[in-house]
Nucleic acid binder design. Sequence first.
DNA 1: TCAAAAGTGTTATCCTTACACCCATGT
DNA 2: ACATGGGTGTAAGGATAACACTTTTGA
Lengths: 320, 320
Amino acid sequence: MREAEPRAAAPLVGLAAAILAATLDEPRVLTVPVAGQPEGRGEGLPAGPLEPAHPTLERGLRAWVERQTGQSLGYVEQLYTFGDRNRRPGGEGAGGKGNGGQHALSVAYLALVREARPAADSAWQSWYRYFPYEDRRAGRPPSLDALTARLEAWAEAAPNPEERRRRGDRIGLTFGAAGSGWNEERVLERYELLFEAGLVPEAGAPDSLAGQAMAVDHRRMLATALGRLRGKIKYRPVVFELMPPVFTLGQLQRVVEALSGILLHKQNFRRLVAQQGLVEETDAVTAETGGRPARLMRFRREVLLERPAPGLRLPSSRAG
Amino acid sequence: MREAEPRAAAPLVGLAAAILAATLDEPRVLTVPVAGQPEGRGEGLPAGPLEPAHPTLERGLRAWVERQTGQSLGYVEQLYTFGDRNRRPGGEGAGGKGNGGQHALSVAYLALVREARPAADSAWQSWYRYFPYEDRRAGRPPSLDALTARLEAWAEAAPNPEERRRRGDRIGLTFGAAGSGWNEERVLERYELLFEAGLVPEAGAPDSLAGQAMAVDHRRMLATALGRLRGKIKYRPVVFELMPPVFTLGQLQRVVEALSGILLHKQNFRRLVAQQGLVEETDAVTAETGGRPARLMRFRREVLLERPAPGLRLPSSRAG
DNA sequence: TCAAAAGTGTTATCCTTACACCCATGT
DNA sequence: ACATGGGTGTAAGGATAACACTTTTGA
């Protein structure tokens, strides 16, 4: 599996995808088993090297995903190109003397799919397996207390007062102690803070209080994807990439809640969706939702031409 | 200068920077002369290949920029990794038979700097040299009429009615004919539309009605940078990366107007900045602005801890 | 009859937008 | 005096957030 050094140091370019879906009340990500890690970490995102046969980056990504998982992708968007730090599992100096020669980049993508049929070795996992503290639908998760306690300890252990204040500020800003409260979009900032504090398994933490680990920097990519999606649903109708062709308003709301990790105010959510012109009624109703039968809706494509930023500005309410 | 093919097809990775500043009433971008293009196109962004000696992508970028322009960078943010299309100047098939072998990626960055001292061969150019139609501070620019006329002609020339409607929709959406009006953030979408319609020099247009050309895909990168910055000033206090330590509210407004290409309502702008807590007064005033001496202000760093998204939501007004 | 979910109506509040106006300086 | 830019106040309109309440099904 290890190749001879190609000349001095031609960079290796990889492609990776955070493929997201929503089934029932759970947001999902498509994972594949990863072998050959130290300590046998087993989970990762679909990924593979950029090959000469790939006409474009995105086409190469689609090819890899189909090969590894059988899933064909719809909506695809480039996220970020990683390559700065933490690319090699062992960190600096793991590979011996000449470590600084070979660059290993990875171009990460976000993909949204409707159907969630797992194929081959792949599996759909809940997002919150990897980021348990990101799910606040049942209120502030209890594990957060232990986590922030350790973060505070890390801040206290700073080498000087200035750094201690800075760490404290970051904790407040990302985890919500500050006046601003919880901001569901700051997924990456929270993960990076936990990483720096040594609280994630990838950075040497003994347990998985901060979530299940992934191969190399895949969890960083996933965090980037979740943050981007949580932001984007507010000004682009991307949620509908995850919904079936017809759906009830209640189902739509539960998907949005699953993605954003917070509960929304029912009445206002319905009014918002309606008055934004994001959906239109169909003739059908369904009785499968529990109480009174609900009208089935569909996405209104025309909204793309009408509004500059059609989306679901979520407030922060928590009513039922 | 041309190297022997490294093995089969190791990808080439380049780094490029759109370095932005604001001087007087003009938004600026730092350019370097580019030789060796067909027809001698002369302008490009600072750029260079990723080298083994570069510890990270961003450090490599900073090194290249310093080497080429003498400019040291402050705020830096990754924009996008290009490599899909239009990377090779001549398009498909220009390099002969084995063209599909070697990938050429380019990781583009956005940088914001305060001082604008041109050094070495580099030069500060107005953004609107490359995108004249993006400057609406003096009202709708007259060149836009000719441009949209050609776009309409392109839409009419579509091979089938469906494609024609789609092209018409895109024109309306990006250039504002639709109900939504002009959206100053859609810089990239407008450039790509003009590119597809063959109206930019890079795509074979005979004149520069759609702006001055740049080397390879550098104008696409610049368009990405401008759109990103125009969006970001609304929810992050990035404008202050472009301002001197102290400034008047009028100067701040003129910089924001220069960046966004639209005029703002004076009184509301001042109120907005004040009530957001983005700035604080200093003791000093300056009489250099024309009429009544103005109070000098400075950026309030603490706002980062107080507000979830401190920025300058710009409306669309045009008052003085 | 009750639980559960769908669906409607109303009100208080805040933010955006616009308009009108005064202040201090240089020419 | 008047042009120029700095600076303040206030009112109308729309969007948001919170409230209470009715309707229709299945168990």
